[in-house]
């Protein structure tokens, strides 16, 4: 059993278990903390896939910035009728699980039917080269410069939009 197999199973099992725990907890703060653990496990998986830049960005942007935003909003909002949040029709739960299970079986069937591992074998040196900041940055500032600028503009628009939506109305 080499290190890659070991790391895949450790991080994969953490990611799968924390995802399930995240959607079944009643306290939304606990859900948010499990989601942070899930993002950290995903960052570990990205490291095993030689994607170092994405792994670091995952920790900084997702587990750092976005989840802090979620926890901050959870701190601000305290709904008084929390009981009603859990009055769920049991038929809805069964229906959701059937839908998810059927689609999961379809996806697993498709993954094995297509058999991508027969055509794709990992070339480690190319894979390491693709994950460096250098190669991602080179693509980003040459072929993908327009989407990059558009992403910057989107962030500006989102900042202004969030301020306008959340500020107190004076009339």
């Amino acid at each position: 059993m080499n290190l890659e197999v070991f790391l895949f199973f450790v991080f994969g099992i953490i990611a799968a278990v924390t995802a399930v725990l995240m959607i079944t907890r009643r306290n939304p703060v606990i859900s948010a903390l499990f989601l942070i653990l899930n993002f950290a496990a995903l960052a570990g998986l990205y490291i095993t896939l030689n994607a170092q830049f994405i792994a670091v960005t995952q920790i900084i942007v997702y587990a750092g910035a976005i989840m802090i935003l979620f926890l901050f909003v959870l701190m601000l909002l305290r709904p008084d009728n929390q009981k009603k949040l859990f009055e769920l029709n049991p038929k809805t739960k069964i229906f959701a699980m059937i839908i998810a299970f059927v689609v999961f079986v379809q996806l697993v069937y498709m993954i094995f039917f297509a058999g991508p591992s027969a055509n794709i074998t990992q070339d480690v040196s190319k894979s390491v080269e693709a994950g460096t900041i250098e190669s991602i940055g080179r693509e980003l500032f040459t072929n993908y410069i327009v989407p990059f600028e558009a992403a910057g503009f989107l962030l500006l628009a989102a900042t202004i939009g969030a301020l306008v939506l959340a500020k107190k109305k004076f009339d």
Partner: peptide, 16 residues
């Protein structure tokens, strides 16, 4: 695929 469908289930069964 598993994580995606856990997310789908979470959207369908949560009211918050």
């Amino acid at each position: 695929a598993f994580m995606f469908l856990v997310g789908v289930t979470g959207v369908l069964i949560n009211r918050n």
